[in-house]
Simulated assay, not measured.
Amino acid sequence: MSEPSTSRAASVRPAVPEDGPALGELDRSTWSTLHAVQPRPQPPYEPFFDDRHPPRDILVAEAVNAAGETVLAGYVRVVPPTPMVCNAHVRQIQGLAVAGWARGRGVGRSLIRAACAAARAQGANRITLRVLGHNAPARALYEAEGFAVEGVLRGEFFLAGRYVDDVLMGRPLGP
């Protein structure tokens, strides 16, 4: 996707197939109705990577944990939103997760910035995402990184006994 980048919070690099088990565990450990529309994963677990979700679409963040080890701290998935040529100038974030121990350390911000850089390197001039309306922390982070609300699908999902909005956000990718 792009060259690795480093920040105080995390080092971001393209995923490799060997990251699959750790990414699967991260996905399961961060599952929450705050951001997930699918039911909680149950054993036997599906592999993280498959034909629709290859390593080339994922950037991973590594950071130093409390034990002083450099470990996987998060990931972001960046893909074309459709296979149409007329939409080839757009990339979409279709998944972002940060380990609980790494939250508040700038890992999410590093991943978003790396996603924008990767999209730009692929020739995109715009990036979009969808976020659940009640996910205030994610929305605030996206807004701080230049994303703006471009649409709201009111009551699009019924989660944990209530209707939740699907918020469409996007931003241009400058030079």
Rank of each mutant, 00 (worst) to 15 (best):
N65C: 00
P81E: 02
E150Y: 05
P43M: 02
T70C: 13
P54M: 06
N87W: 14
G106M: 11
D57S: 11
S32C: 06
I127K: 00
C116E: 11
Q38H: 12
V60F: 06
F49H: 07
E69H: 15
P39T: 03
F49I: 07
A73I: 11
H89K: 00
L23E: 09
G151M: 12
V71E: 12
R109P: 01
A117Y: 03
E150G: 13
T128V: 11
E143N: 05
D51I: 07
A36F: 13
V149T: 14
I112K: 00
E46C: 00
A61P: 04
W31M: 07
A61W: 02
V60S: 04
C116R: 02
E69K: 15
N135E: 07
L96T: 13
P137S: 04
Y75K: 10
V37W: 09
N125G: 10
V152N: 03
A138Y: 08
I93G: 00
G68P: 11
V64R: 14
G108Y: 04
A144E: 15
P55N: 05
I93H: 00
E62H: 11
H53V: 14
G151I: 12
D27Q: 15
S110D: 14
P80L: 07
Q92S: 14
R105A: 13
E69C: 12
R103W: 09
D57H: 13
T30K: 10
S29A: 13
V37A: 08
A121M: 08
W101C: 01
P137C: 05
V64E: 15
L59F: 09
D51E: 15
V71D: 07
G95P: 00
V90F: 02
A61F: 01
A114S: 14
L59I: 10
V149R: 10
A121Q: 14
N87A: 14
T33N: 12
G146Y: 09
E46V: 04
V37H: 08
R40E: 15
A148P: 09
L34A: 15
V152W: 03
G68N: 09
P137L: 06
P83W: 02
P81C: 00
A138G: 12
P44E: 01
P41Q: 08
Y45S: 04
V149C: 10
P39V: 03
G74T: 07
V85S: 11
V85C: 03
G106P: 14
D51H: 13
G24W: 13
E62I: 12
Q92R: 14
C116A: 11
R77G: 01
P54I: 05
I58F: 12
L34H: 13
A136K: 05
P47H: 06
T128Q: 12
V131M: 05
L23H: 11
A124V: 03
T33E: 13
C116P: 01
L141F: 03
N135Q: 07
V76K: 01
Q94I: 14
A136Y: 02
F48M: 04
